[in-house]
Computed example of a mutant assay.
Amino acid sequence: MAALGLVLAGLVGGALWWWAVLGLALVPERTGLLEGILAAGGWGLGLLPVHVTPHRGPRRGAAAGRG
């Protein structure tokens, strides 16, 4: 039941984001502050997982020999 709620919340959030992005792209003179915030926030959250994951590549420098 909780998984269904999460999926539904994700779908609603995605639909709101697309509504804001399409509004900004197709009719920029009629969009407001809310649409801009929604579009920019969704775009920023889309990039977040890429930038917050730790790098698992080979270590270099003085710390490479430890642990």
Rank of each mutant, 00 (worst) to 15 (best):
L4E: 08
L4M: 09
L4I: 04
L4S: 08
L6I: 01
L6P: 00
V7S: 08
V7P: 00
V7F: 01
L8C: 06
A9T: 00
G10A: 09
L11N: 08
L11D: 08
V12H: 07
G13P: 02
G13D: 09
A15F: 09
W17T: 01
W17S: 02
W19K: 13
W19L: 13
A20G: 01
A20T: 00
A20K: 01
V21Q: 08
V21S: 09
L22A: 15
L22I: 12
L22P: 03
G23A: 07
G23I: 00
L24D: 02
L24V: 02
L24S: 02
L24I: 04
V27A: 15
V27C: 12
P28G: 11
P28D: 11
E29F: 10
E29H: 13
E29M: 12
E29I: 10
R30C: 05
T31Q: 14
G32Y: 03
G32M: 04
G32N: 05
L34T: 03
L34D: 05
L34C: 07
L34N: 04
L34Y: 04
E35G: 00
G36Q: 08
G36T: 04
G36W: 03
G36E: 03
I37V: 14
L38V: 09
A40L: 10
G41Y: 06
G41C: 05
W43K: 11
G44V: 03
G44D: 05
G44H: 05
L45I: 10
L45E: 07
L45K: 07
L47P: 04
L48C: 03
L48M: 04
L48W: 07
P49R: 01
P49K: 01
V50R: 08
H51F: 14
V52Q: 10
P54I: 02
H55G: 12
H55K: 11
R56L: 15
R56V: 13
G57T: 04
G57Y: 08
P58T: 13
R59L: 15
R60Q: 15
R60I: 07
R60M: 12
G61E: 11
G61D: 11
A62E: 10
A62F: 10
A63L: 13
A64H: 06
G65L: 06
G65W: 10
G67R: 14
G67M: 14
